[in-house]
Computed example of a mutant assay.
Amino acid sequence: MYLSTRDMARLGLLMLSDGNWNGKQIMPAGWAKRVTTLVTPSRDIHPMTIGAFQTQIGCWGYGMLWWVWDAPDWPGTLTGPYQNAYSAMGANGQYITVLPVMNLVVAHKVDFDQDGSRSISPSEYHTILQMVIDSTL
């Protein structure tokens, strides 16, 4: 699927607003929450092995077509900007990340069709994402 960066950001904003666009409900209310509810925990996706350690990248579990931040979330505790976050992670570095606590959507696009060598790893993207978060705090 080819989307412009603007359209990717719009999709993120639509999810952040629970399907409401300019006062019109174009997606069933509650659907965004349903598809971004954790189904497969990160420990099942990234099992710990001898010598392995939990990294920020390893904290993403899976919902329904969205990666869901999978870290402890207890009422009354501050878990930071990733609390209730979710992300669409596509080929070669295409990302839409929604950070509800910050009311923020990050859309990242890579033009990998030019020569086929342009891409970023999940680790590189998370570095970029953390820099964006840090710049807003």
Rank of each mutant, 00 (worst) to 15 (best):
M1N: 14
Y2N: 15
T5N: 15
R6D: 15
M8A: 14
L11N: 07
L13N: 10
L16H: 06
N20W: 01
N20P: 00
G23R: 09
K24Y: 06
G30H: 02
W31K: 12
A32M: 06
K33L: 08
R34G: 03
T37M: 03
L38R: 08
L38Y: 08
T40Q: 14
S42C: 10
S42Q: 09
S42T: 07
R43V: 12
I45C: 03
H46Q: 01
P47V: 08
M48P: 00
M48V: 11
M48T: 11
G51M: 06
T55F: 09
T55M: 10
C59V: 00
Y62T: 02
G63T: 05
G63V: 07
G63F: 06
L65C: 03
L65G: 02
V68T: 12
V68Q: 07
A71G: 04
A71C: 01
P72L: 07
D73K: 12
W74D: 12
G76H: 11
L78S: 13
L78P: 01
T79Q: 13
T79Y: 06
G80N: 06
G80V: 07
G80H: 07
P81F: 04
P81K: 03
N84D: 15
Y86G: 04
G90Q: 01
G90S: 00
G90M: 00
N92K: 13
N92C: 02
Q94S: 10
Q94F: 01
I96P: 04
I96D: 04
V98F: 02
V101Q: 15
V101R: 15
L104E: 02
V106I: 15
V106K: 03
H108P: 01
H108K: 13
H108V: 13
H108T: 12
K109F: 10
D113F: 09
Q114D: 03
D115C: 09
G116M: 06
G116F: 07
S117G: 11
R118P: 00
R118L: 08
S119L: 04
S123A: 13
S123P: 00
S123T: 13
E124A: 11
E124T: 10
Y125F: 15
H126E: 14
H126M: 15
T127F: 06
I128A: 09
Q130C: 01
M131P: 00
V132A: 05
I133G: 01
I133E: 01
D134Q: 13
D134V: 01
T136R: 14
